[in-house]
Nucleic acid binder design. Structure first.
Length: 595
RNA sequence: GGCCUUGUAGCUCAGUGGAUAGAGCAGCAGCCUUCUAAGCUGCGGGUCAUAGGUUCGAAUCCUAUCAAGGUCACCA
């Protein structure tokens, strides 16, 4: 890319003109704003101290130096402290011809064997997935693809929380009120069936608490003394003791949930390389904690519980093992982190987990460091914000949860209604039409969620269905389908898409702007990977699609009579189609050949 | 109360120290006998929460205040 060459030359210029070594942070290049002439702009203010001249004079001197030493520089102009550099047309045309037919332009080949382990999804098995899980899954999956495209060896893992009191609640409610109901007998998806009994438990439990309170028991005690919660805890104890009947029920109901999750993941287009189950890992951290006690990193209280004092790090005292010797959440996470470290020897361990667990991950890192695990610094918590509804946070107990399966179905229905209204599917057979509804519905949903900076909370308004026009997934998908249509017709007409013979042609402003946007992509990919942010890719994809639509509107392609121009525009179209589909692939969004 | 995050147009969001702060939606006005109008063009819309500070230059960095959210369990 021309930027690297420019940066080096500018450093040479500073050394030669002012006898000073310029640092990377001083050489600030940016794309020239559209209202000025030029392609790339150098901000010269950082050099006025060493030049001891005005910004304008400094910019002129550097500009002259670049003109004299870089053949790719066509000309330059100076406005205030900004040196606007015009790059020769030949550079752009060569760039086009070398990259327009590439399949994965800007992607970086695998450059580190040490894997990056990305954990995401990590659902509980007592209820179906909802909108919050969708954000988690989309972020984790897209981030994995972005890192992979940036040259990382990515391992996608899921840690299913398949044991604990929450599952016992569903089990108990099903035993008591289920009458043997199964997914087959009820026609309910397995995860929804189990979720139904979780809700029933909660309702009955609340009634018991209310009854106790009305008898004069204080509310804090009532929560602990209600018969249902005591029974659920007994089931958990039986589970831990390996009670056959409990284990069988647990396996049966979890099996229903897994079948349900598999359908949701498949519809959403999410995959994992490895799935772990907490029932098999929850004991892992105990030895580690014992080791920490022996090393004196953690201390045991008289009641047998183990603690770590993190006040030196500005955190609190934290429990690592209960007085009865059982694990807490932190214990398990210590264990699985260690297991992952030993299994993969990773370059980085990424956890895609909501921001309500920020404190937990800070503590996790510090606790590991106290054990002497230097690799704790390779843990990265991708802390994403909550999805809020207009009335506030989603609450499963109040039934304000947006269910993942329902939402996807609504998206499919909306895209079908839209396509019919627009008369788009008259030439489609049933299967192609159905695929289109799915592709576009998911495209709208995924783009909607991924375009927002992960760390920010985002708002989802169910009454205003997700948009299909403007800055949306379907807009970008439409751009792709449009290009493919042009390319198909070009092929029918026997036109060359190749750029080989057009390097002497002209380059109109619409063509050049589009080309420059394509030229930006490799840097965008690296930025997205560094920032762990699919939103960077999403926003770029929209800008690229907008730029193409402007180009498409202003210029004719197939009817252009100058064959060099026609060829150039076809080449630009092909290049754009490739990059658009690659960027959407990075977001986990598919592209339709027509729509 | 301690700590963390956020606050940009009516709404949803970009903007990682640089030029006159940008998109989309919503509103208004145009553009299909021409390669897909899920598109394109134009108009209106701003105390970048507030007040200080650092800097040649601040929406961006620092401090304080206000507002919203999160978190500080022998829950996960």
């Amino acid at each position: 890319m021309i930027e690297h060459i420019l940066i080096n030359k500018i450093k040479e210029a500073i050394l030669s003109l002012y006898q000073t070594e310029a640092t990377d942070s001083q050489v600030q290049l940016q794309n020239t704003r559209k209202e000025f002439e030029g392609d790339i702009t150098l901000v010269v203010f950082p050099f006025t101290k060493v030049s001891r001249k005005s910004p304008e004079a400094t910019a002129n001197e550097i500009g002259e130096f670049l003109m004299a030493s870089l053949p790719s520089v066509e000309s330059f102009n100076v406005i205030k402290g900004f040196l606007n550099i015009v790059i020769k047309k030949e550079y752009w045309l060569t760039f086009l011809s070398e990259n327009s037919e590439k399949q994965k332009f800007g992607f970086i080949a695998l450059n580190n064997d040490k894997p990056v382990v990305v954990e995401y999804s990590s659902p509980n098995t007592n209820k179906p997935l909802h909108l919050g899980h969708i954000r988690n899954n989309l972020l984790g999956f897209s981030l994995s693809r972005i890192l992979q495209a940036a040259g990382k060896n990515v391992v996608k893992v899921n840690l299913v929380n398949d044991r604990g009191i929450h599952i016992c609640k569903s089990m108990l409610a099903w035993q008591r009120w289920g009458n043997g109901e199964t997914p087959e007998s009820s026609g309910l998806k397995g995860d929804h069936l189990v979720g139904k009994y979780y809700v029933i438990f909660d309702k009955q439990y609340k009634e018991q608490i209310a009854a106790l309170v009305s008898e004069g028991v204080n509310p804090d005690d009532a929560v602990k003394k209600a018969p249902l919660i005591i029974e659920a805890q007994q089931i958990l104890q039986k589970w831990e003791a390996g009670d056959e009947e409990v284990i069988n029920l647990w396996k049966k109901m979890n099996g229903w949930v897994y079948d349900g999750f598999a359908v949701t993941y498949k519809t959403l287009g999410i995959e994992f390389d490895k799935t772990y189950y907490e029932s098999q890992t929850y004991l892992l951290g105990k030895e580690l904690v014992e080791k920490g006690v022996q090393q004196g990193a953690y201390h045991r209280r008289d009641d047998g519980s183990v603690w770590i004092d993190l006040s030196a790090e500005g955190l609190d005292e934290k429990l690592l093992l209960r007085s009865d010797g059982t694990s807490v959440y932190m214990t398990q996470d210590l264990g699985t982190a260690m297991q992952r470290y030993e299994t993969y020897n990773p370059e980085q361990l990424i956890y895609v987990v909501g921001n309500e667990q920020e404190y937990h991950f800070n503590v996790l890192k510090v606790v590991l460091k106290h054990l002497g695990c230097g690799w704790a610094d390779s843990i990265y918590h991708l802390s994403y914000g909550m999805v809020e509804l207009p009335e506030g946070k989603m609450k499963s107990r109040e039934g304000t949860v947006v269910d993942a399966d329902d939402l996807m179905q609504e998206m499919f229905d909306t895209s079908e209604a839209m396509a019919r209204e627009l008369g788009k599917i008259e030439t489609f057979d049933n299967e192609e039409a159905r695929n289109l509804y799915r592709t576009i519905g998911l495209g709208a949903l995924k783009y909607f969620m991924l375009k927002v900076d992960p760390k920010k909370n985002m708002l989802f308004n169910p009454s205003e269905s997700v948009d299909f026009n403007g800055n949306t997934g379907p807009f970008i998908q439409y751009t792709y389908a449009r290009i493919k249509s042009v390319l198909r017709k070009a092929e029918e007409a026997g036109y060359l898409v190749s750029m080989k013979d057009t390097e002497t042609g002209q380059l109109l402003s619409q063509e050049k702007e589009l080309l420059k946007k394509l030229h930006d992509f490799p840097a965008i990919l690296i930025q997205a990977a560094d920032m762990h942010s699919p939103a960077v890719v999403a926003n770029y994809a929209f800008e690229l699609a907008s730029e193409y639509n402007r180009f498409y509107h202003d210029l004719t392609i197939l009817k252009e009579e100058n064959t060099a121009s026609r060829s150039l525009r076809l080449s630009l179209s092909l290049f754009t189609a490739n990059v658009v589909s690659d960027t959407l692939w990075l977001l986990g969004i598919e592209v339709p050949e027509r729509m």
